[in-house]
């Protein structure tokens, strides 16, 4: 560790590149904490937004018109408003009127970020999955129904495996966007990467250096996600399907 610190100190002395995260233990701990928070936030949001997407597309096909209407308005609300405004709205407006528990609000800023961003990306996921369902030939469902499968079985056993294969590229896009959108949690003081980087650069006056670090870090995080998703895409490929 000492040689690493020595290298970064030399970098500052010799070239004026002040990467405090390389030699200042406090800044490094802050930065790694921010990295962890971004990864956690992204993973939770991906998980919940895909679950919300699946639930939404299932409800879109429900017989009850009120359920269908609820999904429609959910999508309209979350797709037609900026995610930053949603974060402010939930954290300050909704969070401010919730009943207190032990004098504190029941939902903290991290939880609000997960909720808001999951619903935000979930709204897009519903539409992505719907496009997948509509691309599956209708006869497929009819054949399954003729075999006596229930609606749930048709959905999970017949449609979903095909839907995933069809809409993975679009889903991929939306999830990459979601990871990048987690930076907005900065506004409600969630200590993710952008937040800690801003703290570090305002303390150390090394804006240029931290901007570069930030960019490279996001390229790496999104790179990992894209790599995993494209491997999954390849593994799920059905030779000859759709031709």
């Amino acid at each position: 560790m000492d040689t690493v610190a020595a290298f970064f100190k030399w970098l500052k002395a010799a070239h004026g590149i002040n990467l405090t995260i390389g030699y200042d233990a406090f800044d490094r701990a802050r930065f790694l904490g921010g990295l962890l928070a971004t990864v956690e936030l992204s993973a939770l949001c991906i998980l919940f937004s895909v679950a919300i997407g699946l639930a939404g597309v299932w409800l879109q096909g429900a017989r009850n018109k009120w359920l269908r209407g609820a999904v429609y308005w959910y999508i309209q609300f979350f797709r037609n408003t900026p995610p930053l405004v949603q974060l402010y709205f939930f954290y300050f407006a909704v969070g401010g009127v919730l009943p207190r528990i032990d004098g504190g609000p029941p939902i903290g800023n991290f939880a609000w970020a997960v909720i808001t961003l999951s619903f935000f990306a979930g709204a897009f996921n519903v539409e992505i999955f719907r496009s997948g369902i509509e691309a599956v030939p209708r006869t497929m469902g009819e054949a399954a129904e003729a075999l006596g499968l229930t609606r749930a079985k048709i959905f999970f056993l017949i449609l979903l495996p095909l839907v995933f294969r069809i809409c993975l590229p679009a889903l991929n896009n939306n999830l990459v966007n979601l990871v990048k959108t987690t930076t907005l949690a900065y506004a409600i003081a969630v200590p993710e990467l952008l937040y800690v980087a801003a703290q570090i650069w305002s303390d150390e006056n090394n804006v240029r250096e931290m901007m570069n670090v930030l960019l490279v870090t996001y390229v790496a995080i999104v790179g990992v996600l894209v790599h995993a998703m494209s491997r999954w895409e390849r593994a799920m490929r059905l030779p000859g399907f759709g031709q």
Binding site: Y91, F92, G95, G104, P105, G108, A189
Partner: peptide, 8 residues
């Protein structure tokens, strides 16, 4: 101040 007032 809003966050303080809301008990955050």
């Amino acid at each position: 101040l809003t966050a303080l007032g809301a008990g955050n």
